[in-house]
Computed example of a mutant assay.
Amino acid sequence: MLTADQLNEIKALQQTVEQHDIIELKLNWDMLENRSEGELTDFFAFDSGKVVGFLGLYRFGSKIEVCGMVHPDFRKRGIFSDLFRQSITVLQKSRYILLNVPANSVTGKAWLNRVSCTFKESEYLMRWEGSKAIPDSDQPIQLRPSLPEDNDLKIELDIVCFDFQAEEAKAYNDYLAKGGFQKEFYMIEAQGKTVGKIRIHRVGKRSEIYGFAVLPEFQGKGYGRKALQQAVKLEKDQGQSAVYLDVQLKNERALSLYTSCGFVQESQQDYYLYSI
């Protein structure tokens, strides 16, 4: 579990790095702020008591994503490589490891050239620009707060839509429940049935959409589009100034859906498969 001081130091370092490199790092703040007690996921480098390097591990089912940074004034000293070596014992417990680097990060890509990895995939961070009107729903779609009895369906959706294994999906949903994320979930109702889920995480006036999924047998009926439109409207009605989501570039169907609903690309993250 990270302390308030540690979180503030990570945030300050992130701001320095992003402004210097003109990039946007993906540090998964919803997870950083809710680390489990005793969980070894975060690694620090210090100079004169100041955090000058950070590496975080983020587990999603069978994979661990790795993202980190080093202060511009302390680069070319092997700091990030040392942090990465410290994390290896944890990484070895995962089925596969993805190294996350902003697509336009020169220093990040230079480091990747020195490790054993291959390009895996890219994703866009997309922002709802707010210029498109949100149409009233003409489909019998409803978003309702998630209940404990929805847990089995959320696990099923992670298995069929996000390629989780059963035990990994259960562990991930247990982690989300333990971290207090249960209140962020909405279930998608259609035809008198629960057909999907969507999670909305709020940070100040910024809303972030995660885990948006519809059961395969209910896809292609417009339910996902209406659910997404309702989610955006919910956030705008509550005074949120920005709504974000991630999408893989290879997921052309989802990318087309999000674009047609008024989302625009803001940045790109690249992922590289690392071999222990």
Results as ranks from 00 to 15, higher is better:
residue 91 L to G: 08
residue 59 R to L: 07
residue 89 T to M: 11
residue 67 C to H: 14
residue 89 T to C: 09
residue 93 K to L: 06
residue 81 S to H: 15
residue 91 L to Y: 03
residue 53 G to M: 02
residue 80 F to M: 00
residue 89 T to E: 15
residue 42 D to Q: 08
residue 82 D to K: 11
residue 88 I to T: 14
residue 77 R to D: 01
residue 85 R to P: 02
residue 51 V to W: 07
residue 44 F to Q: 01
residue 96 Y to E: 14
residue 87 S to V: 09
residue 88 I to D: 06
residue 80 F to C: 00
residue 87 S to Q: 05
residue 90 V to D: 07
residue 46 F to M: 06
residue 90 V to H: 07
residue 73 D to S: 08
residue 66 V to P: 11
residue 78 G to E: 14
residue 64 I to R: 15
residue 91 L to S: 06
residue 57 L to N: 12
residue 55 L to H: 00
residue 49 G to C: 07
residue 41 T to P: 06
residue 87 S to L: 03
residue 89 T to Q: 13
residue 52 V to D: 04
residue 95 R to Q: 14
residue 47 D to N: 13
residue 45 A to K: 07
residue 61 G to V: 08
residue 51 V to I: 15
residue 54 F to Y: 15
residue 94 S to L: 03
residue 62 S to Q: 15
residue 67 C to A: 10
residue 94 S to N: 12
residue 74 F to G: 01
residue 82 D to W: 05
residue 81 S to Q: 13
residue 57 L to F: 14
residue 67 C to K: 06
residue 74 F to S: 01
residue 52 V to W: 04
residue 63 K to P: 12
residue 44 F to S: 01
residue 57 L to Y: 14
residue 57 L to Q: 13
residue 79 I to H: 00
residue 51 V to N: 03
residue 66 V to G: 03
residue 79 I to A: 01
residue 92 Q to K: 15
residue 65 E to G: 13
residue 47 D to V: 05
residue 54 F to G: 01
residue 90 V to A: 11
residue 60 F to L: 05
residue 43 F to D: 00
residue 81 S to Y: 06
residue 67 C to L: 04
residue 92 Q to Y: 07
residue 85 R to G: 04
residue 85 R to E: 13
residue 51 V to M: 14
residue 60 F to W: 05
residue 48 S to P: 06
residue 82 D to H: 10
residue 47 D to W: 02
residue 47 D to A: 08
residue 64 I to E: 09
residue 65 E to F: 08
residue 69 M to V: 05
residue 45 A to I: 07
residue 72 P to C: 10
residue 85 R to I: 09
residue 75 R to W: 02
residue 86 Q to H: 10
residue 44 F to E: 01
residue 76 K to T: 05
residue 67 C to R: 12
residue 53 G to V: 01
residue 62 S to F: 12
residue 41 T to V: 11
residue 42 D to W: 02
residue 90 V to T: 14
residue 73 D to V: 00
residue 72 P to N: 07
residue 51 V to E: 06
residue 65 E to N: 14
residue 83 L to W: 06
residue 63 K to S: 11
residue 91 L to R: 14
residue 83 L to D: 00
residue 57 L to I: 12
residue 76 K to S: 08
residue 78 G to D: 12
residue 67 C to E: 05
residue 93 K to F: 05
residue 78 G to S: 09
residue 61 G to F: 10
residue 48 S to Q: 15
residue 47 D to P: 00
residue 70 V to Y: 01
residue 59 R to V: 13
residue 84 F to L: 12
residue 83 L to A: 03
residue 96 Y to T: 13
residue 42 D to R: 02
residue 58 Y to M: 07
residue 58 Y to I: 06
residue 71 H to W: 02
residue 90 V to F: 07
residue 58 Y to T: 11
residue 89 T to R: 10
residue 41 T to C: 11
residue 87 S to P: 12
residue 48 S to F: 08
residue 67 C to T: 15
